[in-house]
Design a protein around this nucleic acid. Structure first.
Lengths: 217, 217
DNA sequence: AGTGCATAGTGAAATTTTTAACAATCACCG
DNA sequence: CGGTGATTGTTAAAAATTTCACTATGCACT
């Protein structure tokens, strides 16, 4: 019998659930109706038990002897993660990366709607990108409160990341996704995630070096 | 006494080392010469023992009673990670994100030199971005072999990620950093890393939802 | 030179996460 | 309507990771 659990959910579980959703969406497009934990695990590069355990944190979504109904499972995970609604997002820092995110439709497709963009460069203020006018960063706090924004994305240079964060916090934001290669400090009630692609470059470089040392090439 | 260790190094250690380097670089710019594990830990948001343990995988870099010499430690970590040299990189998929990476100077500054860019869209082939001409993806395998490229970056749409990966593998690449939101399969001798910013958006959304459920807002 | 103080390095304990094993249960079939 | 095969949900064991506690050591000051 599965009653509501109040266990702490590992962060790793969350990022795996995101992968499961990704693969389930591909399957759904392919018209596949049912999938077993074993097959899904193979596709996602994890252990089947892991999948069953990850899902068990949130409920019972499968049918024993059968597997998981793809569409149903996708919905259940999305609901568990809080993705069954739209989130208003603001972006700070309209550089190369910021522009790319503004023009990307992937965020919107996943329910993250960028409702405003900010920069402190006077040359960029007023510019229109993807239907959004770039505003002055100092206006950020009042705008976010007006617009009911919950998430802020930082795409400034590293040295300006903390200032951007401060504006966001002042504006009452609840979560920050920081693309700038710099740690930022924020109060406990604000969730901070770091997207550091450089770190992934480092990882690959390290893995290659290691394999070379071990003589695998 | 610290002899060469052949322990497996946790992946989490590697990504923390990258964070340490980041913070050490900031300190160096600020002219700070020495740092203790405790202060560095606080800046990076980790436990001091963790830092000491992470570093112990690679050697003894500190001075007891004093701390770590910032410049020296940065160098030691960079060397340990295999970052004390340049890496040739190719990029596949010249969309919004691909362009942003090509124009970004951060990669080059960290020793990752993009030496070629590829796309399968005839309208993009021949275009010049950041001093690099976009080539046809089908030419990728022979180019990478000629140019001694070791790392490939995938910034295609998800449905074309696997094909891009196949070209890279055929070209003898040793590591792949995949920005496309899709899992890819590659032989064991190729290291694959995923950069999924959508997952981080998911994490933040989830954390906010959780806090709301627990009544923290 | 000796003493005290600060802090790195390290082995062991605690915690967390992953994997394995198995009992429960559902669909299907005769 | 019970038996059979498959696959989940769950408990227990194993493995990995993090944290703690302590030892060793270098520096500064007397």
């Amino acid at each position: 019998m599965h009653y509501l659990k109040f266990e702490r959910i590992p962060r790793a579980t969350i990022s795996r659930l995101a992968v499961y959703v990704q693969e389930l969406e591909v399957m759904e497009q392919q018209g596949l109706k049912v999938i077993s934990s074993e097959k899904l695990a193979h596709l996602c590069g994890v252990n089947p038990s892991q999948i069953r355990k990850d899902l068990a944190y949130f409920g019972e979504f499968g049918v024993r002897g059968v597997g998981y109904y793809v569409h149903e499972l996708r919905g259940a995970i999305r609901q568990s993660l809080g993705l069954d609604r739209n989130w208003n997002v603001v972006l700070v820092g309209v550089g190369n990366l910021g522009r790319a995110l503004l023009r990307h439709n992937m965020l919107r497709k996943r329910g993250f709607v960028i409702v405003a963009a900010f920069d402190c460069d006077p040359f960029k203020i007023g510019e229109e990108i993807a239907g959004l006018e770039v505003n002055c960063s100092s206006k950020l706090p009042e705008s976010t409160q007006e617009m009911n924004v919950e998430i802020g994305v930082i795409t400034t240079p590293p040295e300006r990341a903390q200032r951007a964060a401060n504006y966001l916090i002042e504006g009452g934001i609840k979560g920050i996704v920081n693309f700038a290669p710099a740690r930022i400090t924020a109060p406990d009630y604000v969730s901070v995630e770091y997207v550091d692609f450089i770190h992934h470059m480092f990882s690959v470089a390290f893995n290659i070096t290691q394999k070379q040392i071990k003589g695998l090439f």
